[in-house]
Amino acid sequence: MRTAAELKLGEKAIIKDIDNTHPSSHRILEIGFTPGQEIVLLTKSIFNDPIGLSIRGTIFAIRKNEASCIII
């Protein structure tokens, strides 16, 4: 099982599920990371964390730890 935190730079993926045991999962769903949507890892910060994911035409900077609840 891979998560969005393991994406390579420029890699695309379709969201399979969101792990709702993560405390940030609800907010992540609310901002549009829903199963079936395509995400792209567009940028990474200097320390490879946070990462920049595009969803529905918007880029979100999001910590790797939180991105790990996005199952792809």
Partner: peptide
Amino acid sequence: DNSSFILEL
């Protein structure tokens, strides 16, 4: 609290 960083770029 849950530490979180989610920010629209």
